[in-house]
Design a protein around this nucleic acid. Structure first.
Length: 839
DNA sequence: ATCCTCCCCTAC
DNA sequence: TAAGGTAGGGGAGGAT
């Protein structure tokens, strides 16, 4: 596509070349399509006919807004075209893949011949290809023909362009320029069909085809020495015209850069070959803005330096360009201005991210609207991931928020002038699961602390992708981890953990206690937190403590905002505004919640997929980070929370300051996976008494092949007794430590940590005894891994880091560590399809 | 140095 | 009324 699309009206009318615009109601099954024109053009275009009076244009009125929106979005069509193409042609006999020729850059530059081919004003041409009577009339593609409207022209044919009609222009403006302009609606189905024909033809003539868009491709014809490139281009163009009814233009050159530049000149319905000798002349007077990669911003910068043409650009040294525009950009400018381009024609690359966003028609009244929208968006993203058979680990939520003084946008239902913000989180195991996406996006949204009425756009992007079939298991496990809960607890599937917990009072108190115990990770933690009376009503907003609010985890804050009818964020913003803060900065000034957000962003444990390696993504668990450890007088919290929305993001003292019912809500909102984890912190018998699903620690052989007997059974667990009488002083020592630090919290990590802090160097026993001790420790670890691998991988990670530290001081632990490392990897791999990296 | 996140810019 | 998406790349700046 060349560029006729886009163009942001509210800002400027930018010249664009692409032609892809779209049109259409075609796929929509809705019975109320609009029809703009019926083949007449008597100088008056025919107004849109709406079939139903209840057309819905915003998130406020249409529960299926997201879905419908994408069906009708031209930009969505363009944006997703590449994926459709990939599916259609990838692996087919057309063979998008070819072996690397192994040429070096210089050879490529010398010998290559590239053809760039591009359909002329694609979106218009396709729609009018069978309507000859329109061919010499000015025609544009647009959603609506209302001359007063703010519908955007998506593509205009050449007669229309002669009047100055351009893509991106509002219809009313276009009609000012050209009153007889004929408006035709999009026809996405036809675009797909023509694009398929187009690529069929290209593949028939050339093996090396790189698809740029539905109407634009590069062909590397260097190997086709028996065919004259110009003749080939002309053959292809003729075939395209005959088959599709649409004209195409072609550029031919020694590099992708020159081929593409040639096409611009060749349009419409022509072709141009730029030989090596003519490159310099061609570039000399070429405006810098014409170069690919130079958009409006860069062009402005260049023009400010009085650099208008490539000839002028060539006079600047590479160093200077790199200094002014960055290393890569400077290099690009330097090369392109000389016609140099080292890129080679390649098949579609692996995708690095998948996402969906909506910045039109987004209007929310309250938290509920937001949640519904996020749900739909997550569903969409999840489906796209599944469609590509990908899963991902990093989730980025993008928000458009009305600028402080921005008025209602000129464009109907547009986003207008907005501040953009984005936040991301990386989780340990990749997923495509819609529920996980929902939970995560909800948290991320909460972290922005927005007045929902100001939101004008929302997008969710998933990156750190992995192939779904490789890591299937990991995804399942992550899902079960996130959504699991003790059997007796009913968790709302509508992801409203908050209200579910409040309804279920008894469970809720119990979990609240579990939550507290989780918070008291340090030795001398004391708890004065108790659940409050949940029956009392919420305190008036004016009684809320701002600091307390701002330290709540984002999810909870957004929940609370909901219970206050969406007024809470407004209040916070207002107070914050008074305190100072440059809220006009697009660089988010959410410092009030920064603590929680920081936690959200850092994931201490990471499993990297089988295909990735060498990633570093760890947070040192022993270094207390963020305000939690800093401000808590309850001791240090060692591990950050794996998942968003954890109570561990909250300073305990903050909890204590909360009004009782809020505190109860906080504890009730404690996420499901944490509750389970917490309950597993409770001695096993206690769990049983409470009728919770007992943790399976009885002697079943698991898949990896060890007996999971009972070392961790009981409180204190059996191993402590066994170690106490082992006769090995190190083991005895561990047993003692357990009683000292872990009795209230039967976990291994505090024991290991304490061992590290109490002992400098371990005095290992004699060889004989040592073997026995190693065996005992390994057995203990094995059973512990089995116990924790599903529900608390962080704990395993932490233990192994500690173990590694112990290994430096003790032969016993060194060997245990070496023996257990492969074991823990196998276990992690089995459950998550990845490995645990212990730096 | 090298990584990461949060942007912005660009193409289509 | 109208459907301002999607994805890659790069730079700034901070963490390690």
């Amino acid at each position: 596509m060349n560029a006729e699309i886009l163009g942001n009206h509210d800002i400027e009318e930018k010249e664009v070349t692409s032609e892809i615009q779209s049109t259409t109601n075609l796929h929509s099954a809705s019975d109320n399509k609009s029809v703009h024109v019926n083949g007449k053009n008597d100088g008056k275009s025919i107004a849109t006919v709406a079939g139903s009076s209840t057309r819905r244009h915003s998130t406020l009125e249409d529960p299926n807004f997201v879905e419908n929106y994408f069906k009708n979005s031209r930009l969505h069509f363009i944006g997703t075209w590449r994926n459709r193409y990939r599916k259609r042609f990838h692996g087919s006999s057309n063979g998008l893949k070819w072996a690397d020729s192994g040429q070096n850059a210089a050879e490529i530059a010398k010998k290559s011949t590239i053809i760039h081919i591009d359909l002329d004003c694609f979106f218009v041409s396709v729609v009018i290809k069978n309507r000859l009577e329109l061919h010499d009339k000015p025609v544009a593609v647009c959603h609506s023909d209302n001359p007063k409207g703010t519908a955007e022209i998506s593509s205009a044919n050449y007669p229309a362009r002669a009047y100055g009609v351009k893509a991106g222009m509002f219809v009313r403006h276009a009609k000012d320029l050209c009153p007889q302009l004929v408006i035709v609606p999009y026809n996405f189905e036809a675009y797909e069909e023509v694009a398929d024909q187009f690529y069929d033809i290209l593949h028939r003539h050339c093996r090396k085809v790189q698809a740029l868009s539905c109407d634009e491709a590069f062909l590397d014809v260097s190997d086709l020495s028996d065919v004259e490139p110009e003749f080939l281009a002309s053959t292809i163009r003729n075939e395209i015209l005959e088959t599709t009814g649409c004209s195409a233009s072609a550029g031919i050159g020694g590099t992708m850069l020159m081929a593409r530049l040639a096409t611009r000149v060749a349009k419409p319905a022509g072709q141009l070959y730029i030989s090596a000798e003519k490159v310099e002349d061609f570039l000399d007077q070429l405006p810098v803005g014409t170069l690919p990669g130079v958009g409006s911003v860069l062009k402005e910068k260049l023009v400010k330096q009085n650099i208008q043409t490539c000839g002028q650009l060539r006079l600047i040294s590479k160093d200077s360009l790199q200094k002014d525009f960055g290393v890569k950009t400077g290099e690009m400018l330097w090369s392109y201005s000389r016609g140099l381009d080292l890129r080679s024609v390649t098949a579609v690359q692996e995708s690095k991210s998948i996402g969906a966003e909506v910045n039109w028609g987004v209007r929310f009244r309250d938290q509920q609207d937001v949640q519904h929208f996020l749900q739909c968006l997550c569903k969409e993203v999840s489906l796209r991931l599944q469609g590509c058979e990908m899963i991902g680990r990093t989730f980025t939520l993008k928000i458009k928020k009305r600028k402080k003084d921005a008025e209602e946008p000129t464009k109907y239902m547009g986003c207008g002038d907005c501040d953009n913000m984005s936040r991301s989180i990386t989780v340990p195991a990749a997923t495509d699961d819609v529920e996980v996406l929902q939970r995560i996006s909800k948290n991320l949204f909460g972290s922005f602390c927005l007045d929902v009425k100001e939101v004008r756009g929302v997008g969710l992007q998933v990156s750190k992708l992995d192939s779904a079939d490789l890591s299937n298991k990991g995804s399942r496990t992550l899902k079960s981890w996130l959504s699991s809960a003790p059997a007796s607890v009913h968790i709302e599937q509508d992801d409203n953990v908050f209200s579910a917990a409040v309804r279920e009072n008894s469970d809720y108190n119990r979990h609240a206690t579990g939550g507290v115990s989780r918070l008291q990770e340090s030795e001398s933690a004391e708890s004065s937190i108790q659940s409050g009376d949940t029956n009392s009503s919420l305190p008036p907003m004016c009684h809320l403590d701002m600091e307390v609010l701002e330290n709540l985890p984002p999810e909870l804050l957004s929940e609370l905002d909901g219970t206050y009818g969406g007024k809470l964020y407004e209040l916070i913003e207002k107070k914050r505004g008074k305190r100072k803060i440059n809220s006009s900065s697009p660089h988010i000034s959410l410092d009030g919640t920064a603590a929680g957000i920081k936690e959200l962003k850092s994931i201490p444990v990471k499993i990297h997929g089988l295909s990735t390696s060498g990633e570093k993504e760890y947070k040192e668990p022993f270094v207390p980070h963020s305000s939690i450890a800093r401000t808590s007088n309850q001791g240090t919290i060692e591990m950050t929370d794996l998942m968003p929305s954890s109570l561990s993001q909250v300073d305990v003292s903050v909890l204590q300051e909360l009004p009782e019912e809020l505190r109860a809500d906080v504890l009730g909102a404690y996420p499901a996976h944490r509750r389970q984890q917490s309950s597993s912190d409770v001695p096993v018998e206690t769990c049983k008494k409470q009728d919770e699903e007992p943790i399976d620690i009885k002697g079943t052989e698991n898949e990896i092949g060890f007996s999971c007997s009972s070392l961790w059974f009981g409180n204190p667990p059996l191993w402590t007794e066994k170690f106490k009488v082992s006769g090995n002083c190190t083991l005895e020592f561990f047993s003692e430590i357990y009683y000292k630090v872990a009795q209230s919290r039967p976990m291994l990590s505090p024991v290991l940590q304490q061992a590290i802090s109490e002992i400098g160097i371990f005095h290992d026993a004699s060889a004989n005894e040592l073997d026995k001790a190693i065996y005992d420790v390994c057995e203990l670890l094995k059973q512990y891994i089995k116990l924790k691998v599903e529900g608390d991988i962080e704990e395993i990670y932490l233990c192994f880091r500690l173990l590694k530290r112990l290994a430096a001081r003790s032969q016993l632990f060194l060997q245990a560590y070496e023996i257990m490392s492969p074991f823990v990897q196998a276990s992690i791999s089995e459950h998550y399809g990845g490995s645990l990296s212990i730096p």
